[in-house]
């Protein structure tokens, strides 16, 4: 507690002294076109389904998504929404996808810990039982929860895509510790590990090795499974997971805008009429 207090006080002082180190800035993420951009944008359902598969087969071995429930997959705007099943708990895809996954529970008779197939009411299970286990298995780094990652990083899906395709060999003169991986899109400060000439390289190091490789995931719709395709699809899936109500928000917004515009016009006309005889 005391140590934390001292650290916090030191932090406050450091900020006040304005002595923040001029960190190197990471590379700007590549700007992609997404189907869900703009006021009328919608998610591409096929892309979300492919993205879910990438998450399920690759990312989920380390990353939790504890805010996403299986039922969300079948909600309006979700990857497996089907207008025949307005209640996502009835959606056979959702039920089958959930049943594929084992989740921890207790035996209601004995209280013993058990594993059972997930239902639509379960959230995506976490790959590690606790934070220490997550760190232990990942060289001290904790894989962040991906439920809201798309909102929690500057650049959102563009950043996620760029990071996933962005792994390159470190430039000569950059010392990379074992278990670390260089990525020019990852924010960090490489000044301390740079012995080369010229500017410190952009980017930073992270514990996650390049997770994707060609054909690592087989897409059911026959889409060619390149790293770029997988990255793009999983980034779209994560954008949906962070904002599952985006389509509802935008369609509500359209109605609200039309209503407000008409009302504004009417009130403006009344204003002109009421003030027509007042010199002002």
């Amino acid at each position: 507690m005391l140590r934390k207090g001292i650290a916090l006080a030191a932090l406050g002082l450091a900020l006040l002294a304005g002595s923040a180190q001029a960190a190197t800035h990471p590379k700007e993420p590549e700007k992609l076109q997404w189907s869900f951009e703009g006021p009328f944008g919608k998610f591409d359902q096929a892309q979300l389904q492919r993205g879910y598969k990438v998450y399920r087969e690759v990312c989920s071995s380390c990353h939790a998504m504890s805010q996403v429930y299986f039922r969300n997959l079948g909600q309006k705007g979700g990857p497996f929404y089907d207008s025949k099943y307005p209640n996502p708990n009835d959606n056979p895809y959702v039920k089958a996808l959930a049943a594929d996954i084992q989740v921890g529970d207790i035996d209601s008779e004995t209280g013993d810990p058990i594993q059972r197939p997930a239902t639509s009411a379960d959230h995506f299970p976490s790959p590690f039982p606790n934070e220490a286990a997550a760190r232990g298995a990942n060289g001290g780094a904790i894989p962040p929860d991906l439920s809201y990652i798309s909102k929690a990083r500057e650049g959102g899906p563009d950043y996620i895509y760029s990071l996933l395709i962005g792994y390159v060999n470190p430039p000569a003169g950059l010392t990379i510790q074992p278990g670390q991986h260089y990525n020019p899109y990852f924010p960090g400060d490489l000044t301390a590990s740079w012995t080369g000439k010229g500017h410190v390289p952009q980017g930073g190091v992270l514990a996650m090795p390049p997770p994707l490789s060609p054909d690592r995931v087989t897409f059911d719709d026959g889409t060619r499974s390149t790293v770029a395709q997988q990255s793009r699809d999983v980034a779209a899936f994560l954008a949906w997971a962070a904002e599952p109500k985006m389509e509802e928000r935008k369609s509500f917004g359209l109605a609200a805008m039309i209503y407000l515009l008409i009302l504004t016009g009417l009130v403006y006309a009344s204003y002109r009429r009421i003030w027509r005889n007042v010199a002002h």
Binding site: P39, K250, F252, G253, A256, M257, L260, T264, Y268, Y271
Partner: peptide, 26 residues
């Protein structure tokens, strides 16, 4: 009604800006 209607119009224009942020760039 002079300023209720003028303020009302301005409030609605302001609401349009507000709605832009809430619905399209929250």
């Amino acid at each position: 009604p002079y300023y209720t209607v003028k303020d009302g119009f301005a409030i609605l224009v302001f609401m349009l800006l507000f709605a832009y942020f809430v619905f399209y760039n929250p």
